[in-house]
Write a protein that binds this DNA or RNA. Structure first.
Length: 135
DNA sequence: GCCAACGTTGGC
DNA sequence: GCCAACGTTGGC
């Protein structure tokens, strides 16, 4: 089982929207590296939901419910989408600023390649962030 | 609002 | 196939 992180702008589609909807199609990804990560997702994989721009924090955990399939919003047929459902909000959001100052998280993709919208998260990184969220 | 980083596009 | 120009993302 692999761990992941997806980014979204809370003003556009945030954690609360996912909770309200109960499930969503994660589409619109138009970056090949990010698309590669979407294709590597397996049903049941846990996914951190990160709020970019307004927010800048990891706010919740979701789960992959449907593996990669052609993104209906992509006319070229090159890109894929997955389906996600919310699992639980983090007990407390973990801010990007908090992540950046922790030397154990210096290698996180979120820190090193902040523009990548779908990222792998190592088991160690996942555990550290969950611990931070629990205080 | 600015701008650095990055990916993509298009001329050659 | 290279690379300059451009657009977009996202932190600050």
């Amino acid at each position: 089982m692999k761990h992941w992180l997806v980014k979204s702008e809370p003003d556009v589609y945030g954690w609360l929207d996912l909770v309200r909807d109960g499930a969503t199609r994660w589409d619109g990804v138009r970056n090949h590296m990010a698309a590669g990560h979407l294709k590597a997702m397996r049903a049941g994989d846990p996914v951190f939901v990160y709020h970019s721009n307004a927010g800048k924090a990891v706010v919740g955990v979701a789960r992959v419910t449907r593996e990669a399939y052609p993104d209906p919003t992509d006319a070229t047929g090159k890109f894929v989408a997955v389906d996600l459902e919310p699992v639980a909000p983090l007990p407390a959001p973990v801010a990007l600023a908090t992540i950046k100052v922790d030397p154990r998280l210096a290698e996180m993709v979120l820190v090193k390649n902040s523009r990548l919208s779908v990222q792998p998260v190592t088991p160690a990184e996942w555990a550290i962030i969950e611990a931070m969220a629990s205080g």
